[in-house]
Simulated scan of single mutants.
Amino acid sequence: MRLLNKLGCTLSLVLLSGVVWAAKIDTVKTYSAAMKKEIKAVVITPDNYSDQEKIPVVYLLHGFSGNHKDWIAKVPSITEYADRYHLMIVCPEGNFASWYFDSPEMPDVRYETYISRELVNWIDAHYNTVKNRKGRAITGLSMGGHGALYLSFKHLDVYSIAGSMSGGVDLRPFPGNWGISDVLGTYAKHPEHWEKNSVINMTHLLTPDALALIFACGSDDFFYDVNVNLHEKLLLNNIPHTFISAPGGHTWEFWENALHYEMDFINTHFKKQLKTDQ
């Protein structure tokens, strides 16, 4: 565990004068057979991307009411990470309020299947990627923070690294918020859906070495208490992880700063894991 008092104050991201970041940004259309529709994603490839070298991929999820363009619009500097760490970043469409579920209430909402199977397979088929879990990470903000942990916990065969920023890691305290009841059914009628699909109740899926795990939340965030609870449960279960607690709210300023730490963490683990394959 790392407890940081102020995000952004200890990590130097100063770029050398004259350095030009030239990562390429594309918007691609993919097809979901599960939902029978085309879905967009922003794909960022590094400046020196080629068809000769396989590179790892970070899937970066948006929050409630957002879309695939949120990250590149709000934090355009994410392109620098693709160049700095020589990796791809994929920002998929997660719908307005899917919570990245295969919904038990809405047959046409199958974002778990889409993100963790269909999109991963499409990216691997169209780009020169590391085509196994050692070359895949997933993180996101708010609804996307929940989604990243939810998908990685359930699909340990797909992802080896996971993160979350201000994630809704326990849905149960918020039965009337953010469209969750639309995709899970109301808590009053279907409490079992809320219980089994809250990340905090899914830690039994992890073993100590199953997943490199990092998550952050600001102390002024309405999701702060549930993130602290997840941290304490992981400690109790002896699951290694990095938890970043810092001043801040549910804001893009916090997420932009938190992403610095998460991308550094992801890059470190990619290097460690992929080195063993060489």
Rank of each mutant, 00 (worst) to 15 (best):
L16V: 10
L16K: 09
S17W: 05
S17P: 05
S17N: 12
G18N: 09
V20H: 12
A22W: 04
A23V: 07
A23M: 05
D26K: 08
T27E: 13
K29A: 14
T30I: 06
S32C: 14
S32A: 06
A33L: 11
A34L: 11
M35D: 08
K36A: 11
E38T: 08
I44R: 08
T45V: 08
T45L: 13
T45G: 05
P46K: 12
P46I: 04
P46L: 06
N48Y: 08
D51N: 15
Q52W: 03
K54S: 11
I55W: 10
P56L: 13
V58M: 08
Y59G: 00
L61G: 01
L61D: 01
G63R: 15
F64C: 05
S65V: 12
G66N: 14
G66W: 03
N67I: 03
H68L: 04
K69L: 15
K69D: 09
K69M: 12
W71Q: 09
A73Y: 11
A73V: 12
K74M: 07
V75L: 13
V75E: 08
P76C: 14
S77V: 13
I78E: 10
T79S: 13
Y81K: 06
A82L: 06
D83T: 07
Y85C: 03
L87P: 02
I89M: 11
V90H: 00
P92T: 08
E93V: 02
G94V: 02
G94Q: 09
A97C: 10
A97M: 14
F101R: 07
P104V: 10
E105T: 11
P107H: 10
D108S: 13
D108V: 03
E112F: 03
T113R: 00
Y114P: 00
I115Q: 00
R117C: 02
E118V: 00
V120F: 04
D124V: 10
A125L: 13
H126A: 14
N128Y: 13
T129L: 09
V130Y: 09
K131Q: 14
R133H: 13
G135D: 08
A137Y: 07
T139V: 05
G140E: 00
L141S: 04
M143Q: 13
M143F: 04
G145C: 06
G145E: 00
H146L: 08
H146P: 04
H146I: 01
A148Y: 00
A148C: 02
L149H: 07
L151Y: 00
S152H: 02
F153C: 10
F153M: 13
K154N: 15
